[in-house]
Design a binder for these strands. Structure first.
Length: 425
RNA sequence: GGAGGGUUGGCUGAGUGGUUGAAAGCGGCGGUCUUGAAAACCGUUAGCGGGCUCCGCCCGCUCGGGGGUUCGAAUCCCUCACCCUCCGCCA
């Protein structure tokens, strides 16, 4: 969420941002929020004055009692003041609750470098890398017998339902190899590896922005928990409610986990095969940075993910997302899309975003030199996250790119040691 | 699953209804002393919100979370979470 004081001081900027993000329904929330905030501050002046009276009188009563004097009259007067305080406190609490709820409805502000746009058609291709193989009869992965065997969607239907592929044999080995390869590369780039819980509570899901509005995209489990839609959720929540040591920033984390997404109502060609599934593996990067360093970190995270695609020999392009296609929590976001020769289209394999302080405001995460025991005021912290990379579409591209007439698939050199062979067969 | 104990400021740890937002020690910061450092000594040292005559002052909230009793709660009651010990169970 945005800082309430910032909203209060720059309501027009927030209004423009909401429009740019194509989220007009948030305009009403903003108006209601400004009203409630004003009302609460007025009410608080009342409340605090009454509290001050009560506190002073309580001290006086204490002093008199210690001197052995009576204080019945004062105590009688305070009965009334106290019930008035209670009444005002209740009103304040309900206003606060209202404000908190409205605050969650206000999206993040787009960074000034983000182009205005209404939909995905307005995203900007900022770079393209690698030679796209010309369509020489390359098959989409769902038509490759080998791919169907290594990533068995039929078996998944039996076990669970559509969209839960079963990786087997060399396919399972490929997943394990990719994970090891990605994690090794990120370790070298300074990312600490995390194995987080795959189930989180509502507070965690709220802090990173999945709740309250995107509950339908997650799988809930008994106990009020949710299966993680991305390891961004548990990893970012690692520092919920904490004061970080500013001198230790940036903190860089990576995690290899399955991700669970309902993706309700998606059907058709775009979601065939491995293009969109309900459970998939992903290696994620998360950073906590100083505010002035977060945009540098966004570039370097993006370059880290791109380097993986270069090494895998997969042609890709980088898109700068426009205001309208960016999402609720992001200030700036790049997507990396890999070329799928069998489908002759681009597939999104990574999304790298700067959330600025939007998540840390919800998390209650601050930073200060010396950490919690340090001196001086606490300052804001920015968070970023990005995939490096999402597995199913990366695998789809690898299978389609490496396919050979004999039905086997050639692997890029960089994977040979991790997978233990040069070809999938 | 059963029984008991606990959760206080960056840390250790006092504190069972009244100037306690919280003793003391450690750590941190500033200073005195010193060629420098250490030691010693003096001072200082929470977060959040609001207000103002805004380089500082004032008010309020916060002693695991929430609720209650009371003129007044870190202190009493209820509830939830977490931690520890013992027993059981599982591996």
């Amino acid at each position: 969420m945005l800082d309430l004081r910032h909203i209060r001081d720059h309501p027009e900027q927030v209004r423009r941002a909401i429009r740019a993000k194509q989220l007009p329904e948030a305009l009403a929330a903003l108006d209601a929020l400004l009203l409630a905030d004003e009302g609460r501050r007025l009410a608080r002046a009342d409340l605090e004055a009454k509290q001050a009276v009560r506190n002073a009188a309580s001290k006086e009563i204490g002093a008199r009692k210690r001197r052995g004097e009576g204080a019945e009259e004062l105590m009688a007067q305070m009965t009334e003041v106290s019930s008035e305080v209670k009444r005002l406190e209740d009103r304040d609490a309900s206003l606060a609750e209202q404000i908190d709820a409205l605050l969650l409805e206000i999206p993040n502000l787009p960074h000034e470098s983000v182009p205005y746009g209404e939909s995905e058609h307005d995203n900007v291709v900022v770079a393209e890398h690698g030679e796209r193989a010309t369509a020489d009869g390359a098959l989409p992965h769902w038509d490759l017998p080998l791919a169907r065997r290594l990533f068995d969607l039929e078996a998944g239907v039996t076990l669970t339902g559509a969209g839960f592929p079963v990786a087997r044999g060399a396919g399972a080995r490929l997943v394990r190899g990719l994970a090891a390869y990605f994690l090794d590369r990120l370790a070298r780039a300074g990312y600490e590896e995390i194995i987080p819980p795959l189930v989180v509570n509502a507070a965690s899901a709220t802090a990173t922005g999945q709740l309250p509005d995107k509950e339908g995209q997650m799988y809930g489990v008994t106990g009020g928990f949710y299966l993680i839609p991305t390891s961004e959720v548990p990893v970012t929540n690692l520092h919920r409610g904490a004061i970080l040591d500013e001198d230790a920033l940036p903190l860089r984390y990576c995690a290899f986990t399955p991700c669970f997404r309902r993706e309700a109502g998606s059907h058709g060609k775009e979601v065939r095969g491995l293009n969109r599934v309900h459970q998939f593996d992903k290696v994620e990067m998360v950073q906590f940075t100083r505010p002035e360093e977060s945009y540098g970190a966004l570039e370097s995270m993006t370059e880290t993910a791109e380097a993986l695609l270069v090494e895998l020999g997969l042609p890709f392009r980088r898109l700068l997302m426009c205001t309208g296609d960016m999402g609720f929590t992001q200030a700036k976001k790049y997507d990396l899309e890999v070329w799928s020769p069998g489908q002759e289209r681009w597939l999104e394999v990574s999304s790298i975003s700067n959330m600025e302080a939007f998540q840390t405001n919800r998390l209650g995460t601050r930073a200060r030199s010396g950490g919690a025991a340090g001196r001086g005021r606490t300052g804001p912290v920015h968070t970023l996250n990005g995939s490096a990379l999402a597995f199913p579409r990366t695998i789809a591209a690898l299978l389609e790119t490496g396919q050979r007439p004999d039905g086997t698939v050639e692997l890029p050199q960089v994977l040979h040691e991790f997978v233990g062979s040069n070809v999938l067969a």
